[in-house]
Amino acid sequence: MRVLNYLELADRLDRSGIATSVDHQRRALADTDVEVLTTPWSDGHPAWAAGGKLAFDDPVFRDYDVAHCNMIGPGSVAVARHAERNDIPLVLHAHVTREDFRGSFRGSNLVAPALGQYLKWFYSQADTVLCPSEYTKGVLESYPIDAPIQPVTNGIDTEPLAGFESFREEYRERYDLDGTVVFAVGSVFERKGLTTFCELARATDYDFAWFGTYDDGPHGSESVRKWTSDPPENVTFTGWVDDIRGAYGAGDVFLFPSKVENQGIVVLEAMACGKAVVLSDIPVFREYYEDGHDCLICSDEEEFREALDRLEADPDLRDRLGENAKATARDHGLDRVGERLTEVYEGLR
């Protein structure tokens, strides 16, 4: 079976969670009998190459048995229409929702309602919509989406994290980190709990570090520009890091007070590294993780602060949460992703 696994604008999304999820899909499928194509275009031509208009004729497209698109732009629309015209099963992966688009960059809250209408139309073209969680499935059903929806974990690839411990001293020295380091990983957005992260730093004496890119220019949100330009004294925003293993090596307690997530790959990465994880009380985290077993889940700033102090004072609690977190991460291995994707593809043929 030949499957198109397409990520539109891959070069612009290479540092995103979407790109990580797609990389997980492709690595998982490499261990199956599925032959993966990563571009739909023959000779590298995009679907709108002819006269500046969308083209859906067969010569533009390669041959595949199932089309699986991971983004929502014009290239993915072209693939969807080509699939409909040629009776090719279409899978659309809902990495983007109206809810998680809010709070991403300047003006995103204004655009979100229109995006929701577009996503309702776009995802409804699919034979099957995939999404990372039951929570996201419920969000899509509320639009509503006129297509079957199946949750499939984004998974976790532990291979790129191997040896993270050896980076500890280098990255702590590089960013002047000492003692118990509270850290986050990923692009800096208000949606991911930026203000809570910084307010907690102000209220404690721990070193805080956020490993990830941020936009402090005109496209960045007001809160991102505010906090990154004048952070609390004990907060470091590192920007892009050379090796993500440095982040997980340098940090001790992974703090992720996100307001909205479809799953949160960085949470699974932190768990795979055996870190004590502190999360916000949102539906998707309650779905996948258990408070007091593999993480601590907090509903307000006071609870976050108490959780950090508990973990500082109780090394046994840190170790127990970390060991259980490793087991949780193993439940989201790439073998599971490969099995689920293959089931979906075969069910559509």
Rank of each mutant, 00 (worst) to 15 (best):
K137N: 10
T158N: 11
N109Y: 01
P113Y: 09
V129E: 00
Y123K: 03
R172A: 05
F183G: 08
F164N: 11
N86V: 11
Y118R: 08
W121R: 07
D87Y: 01
C131W: 04
A184K: 13
F167P: 03
L119G: 03
L194R: 11
F101P: 04
E134Y: 15
P144H: 04
S104I: 14
I156N: 06
G107V: 11
S108H: 13
I156Y: 02
T153A: 14
F164P: 07
R172I: 03
A162T: 13
P144R: 06
T97W: 02
E190V: 02
L115S: 01
A94F: 03
F167G: 09
T195K: 10
R174K: 14
P132R: 08
A112D: 00
V96D: 04
D176M: 12
E99K: 01
Y171R: 11
S166G: 00
A112K: 01
A126V: 06
N109S: 13
G138V: 14
P113V: 03
F167E: 14
E173T: 09
P151Q: 08
G138C: 13
A94E: 04
Y175R: 08
Y143M: 09
V152N: 03
T195L: 09
D100V: 12
A147C: 04
D176A: 14
L119Y: 06
E169I: 13
L194P: 12
S166T: 07
N109I: 05
V129G: 01
R102A: 09
A126W: 00
S104G: 11
V91H: 03
E159K: 15
G193D: 03
C131H: 01
D100N: 15
F101S: 01
E165N: 12
Y123T: 07
Y135D: 15
F167S: 08
D176R: 15
E159P: 09
E173C: 01
A126Q: 09
L130D: 07
L194S: 09
V91T: 09
C131Y: 04
P144C: 05
P132F: 13
A126N: 05
R191D: 04
G116R: 05
G103K: 02
T195E: 14
G138T: 12
Y175L: 10
P160Q: 02
T97Q: 06
E141N: 08
V181K: 02
H93M: 05
V185R: 08
P151G: 04
